[in-house]
Design a binder for these strands. Structure first.
Length: 524
RNA sequence: GCCUCCAUAGCUCAAUGGAUAGAGCAGCGCUCUUCUAAGGCGUUGAUGUGGGUUCGAUUCCUGCUGGAGGCACCA
């Protein structure tokens, strides 16, 4: 429809001798200003003539054309909305999908949990955003590979194993604490770290393997709760040697020796960037080199058109440097890579730090929210995801537990409840909906329903799931208003049409929640 | 010191260069003998500050103030 109007306006401008004028066609911010609006009248300075031309050449879907403050507004006909209701019901679970990325293969890396440590609320953030991005990408027709890159070597592992050997309650926390407070423990942990790398101590290897497995199994249970199923797991123990090799192959060309370490002088390529160490003075690859190894692994195991990495924004500058290094090594990889940074999840009381041991685990947050939702896990997961996905990806989230389960608007609960309520009405009805039975005024909910596919598309293009969240909240509000003011099931002639609206709403809400990775319970 | 990002109502968030800056919470006042009141209706309240570009700026550029993150051998 938008495109149709665009072409019509282009034609009008041609005939009015104003061809080439720039203009846009969009949904106005307020419904009083119509379903579509154009600024072509302002940009062409022919508002009056253009409005008159459009009024006399309007397509059948347009009920009326009005000029207001220079803008030309299009009000669509009730038949247009009825047609869309019918179309939504026909497409059902597929309504909202598009094919803009058809034939492409996209890898989305997110969550990036570290074995031996607990999954904390930061991982929850990455997971919620990553899963939503993955789904939005799928809904745009791409084949998506979900990837999880995990740090299974390094000092944190040694700390955890040190704790395991002491058989304490929380091995990682105990190890981390001892490392900073106890000089002897620190030495023991560093020795352990070296031994883990060497992989020669059989007893230690067994401890390592069992600890890793337990940890990964536990992660899997949480991923299941959150609705994530990864296709690929990458480990730092694998990427490290590959990355080290890449750096060594490019010594003198891209990487240089400096103070005993191997560094990349990124500022030579971009003054905003800085030098970073890729291989430390002990000859061990750092996180930076490992990232190069990971990149190679990704592109060599899958024929990717795009690789999206989702991390916290504390890694933004680090990533810019690494991406520049990738660009020097293989620009074709670089051009397909995208780093999406999210903020930090905080509680109103302040930030948590994993170093001080005050981490809030993902599980404990889920359980706390669950405790406030009649013990309903679907509602709890939805509540948490909503809080994360309601605002722009880059910013921090202030997570207020009570607000997240708020029964009054702007929450996951609100969306799920509207969905369950629509389902309940449909179950009560003894007849089927019929979008052909319309009469009367067009409702707000009808004006919003058909917009869902374009919202999904925009979310994909801008890597911004929050557009969907915002839209669904508005949609749920319009549905609740409709529900509160009109008796859906009754004997009058329009009842089948109202039922069709409810059915279409249920489809869109369910698809919307699904594409965000939120559960959509049938009953609450 | 340098780099990046951010600043919207008392609070938490929206607003592809457009119209009277939208929601929710909190506050105040209504609303269940009717399909799920975890709902609905009404009401009070905001673009940090100085310039600039533009027919039009919350949006773009820039000065200032305030905040967050990062800046060599952690990840």
């Amino acid at each position: 429809m938008q495109e149709k109007l665009y072409k019509l306006i282009e034609k009008a401008l041609n005939e009015l001798g104003a061809s080439g004028t720039k203009f846009s066609v969009e949904h106005p911010t307020r419904v009083e200003f119509g379903d579509y609006s154009t600024n072509a009248g302002i940009t062409s300075k022919k508002s009056q003539d253009l409005a008159e031309w459009l009024e006399s050449h309007k397509p059948e879907e347009v009920d009326r054309v009005e000029q207001r403050a220079g803008f030309i507004n299009f009000y669509l006909s009730s038949q247009f909305f009825a047609g869309n209701i019918k179309g939504i019901i026909k497409r059902g679970g597929d309504f909202g999908r598009n094919e803009s990325l058809k034939g492409e293969k996209v890898m989305v890396e997110y969550t990036d949990a570290n074995p031996f440590k607990e999954l904390h609320i930061g991982h929850l953030m990455s997971n919620a955003i990553g899963e939503a991005v993955a789904r939005v990408t799928e809904w745009s027709g791409a084949e998506v590979k979900r990837a999880n890159y995990q740090g299974d070597v390094g000092l944190h592992v040694a700390k955890a194993i040190w704790g395991m050997m002491k058989q304490v309650e929380n091995p990682y926390a105990a190890g981390a604490k001892a490392y900073t407070e106890d000089e002897q423990a620190k030495q023991e942990i560093e020795d352990l770290n070296k031994k883990i790398y060497e992989h020669k101590d059989l007893e230690l290897n067994a401890l390592y393997e069992s600890g890793k497995k337990d940890s990964l199994d536990k992660f899997e249970q949480i991923y299941k709760k959150l609705g994530t199923k990864f296709d690929r797991y990458f480990f730092e123990s694998e990427t490290a040697p590959i990355g080290k090799q890449i750096v060594e192959d490019n010594m003198g060309k891209i990487f240089d020796e400096s103070e005993g370490a191997v560094v990349f002088h990124a500022e030579k390529f971009n003054p905003q960037l800085h030098t970073r160490v890729f291989i430390n003075s002990q000859g061990l690859p750092t996180y930076e080199a490992k990232e190069l190894g990971l990149t190679k692994q990704k592109f060599e195991t899958e024929d990717l058109d795009q690789s999206i990495v989702i991390t916290a924004n504390e890694q933004t500058d680090y990533f810019r440097v690494v991406l520049e290094a990738v660009n020097q090594i293989n620009p074709r990889w670089r051009n397909k890579m995208m780093h999406l940074a999210h903020g930090v999840l905080r509680l109103p009381s302040g930030k948590m730090s994993s170093r001080t041991g005050e981490v809030i685990s993902a599980e404990s947050l889920i359980n706390e929210v669950k405790g406030k939702t009649k013990d309903d896990e679907a509602v709890a997961v939805g509540a948490i995801k909503y809080m994360i996905l309601r605002s722009n990806v880059g910013g921090d989230i202030i997570f207020d537990v009570d607000k997240s389960v708020s029964t009054e608007g702007d929450s996951g609960v609100y969306l799920q409840y509207a969905h369950a309520r629509a389902n309940s009405v449909l179950e009560k009805a003894d007849k089927k909906g019929d979008a052909g039975a319309l009469q009367g005024e067009v409702r707000m909910v009808e004006r919003l329903l058909y917009r869902f596919p374009e919202i999904v598309l925009r979310s994909q293009r801008e890597y911004a799931p929050h557009f969907i969240t915002t839209y669904l909240t508005e949609l749920a509000s319009s549905f609740n208003n409709f529900y509160a003011h009109e008796q859906v099931i009754s004997d009058d002639a329009e009842s089948p049409y109202r039922l069709a609206i409810v059915e279409a709403f249920k489809i869109v809400m369910k698809n919307g929640l699904t594409v965000l990775g939120m559960p959509a319970p049938e009953k609450m």
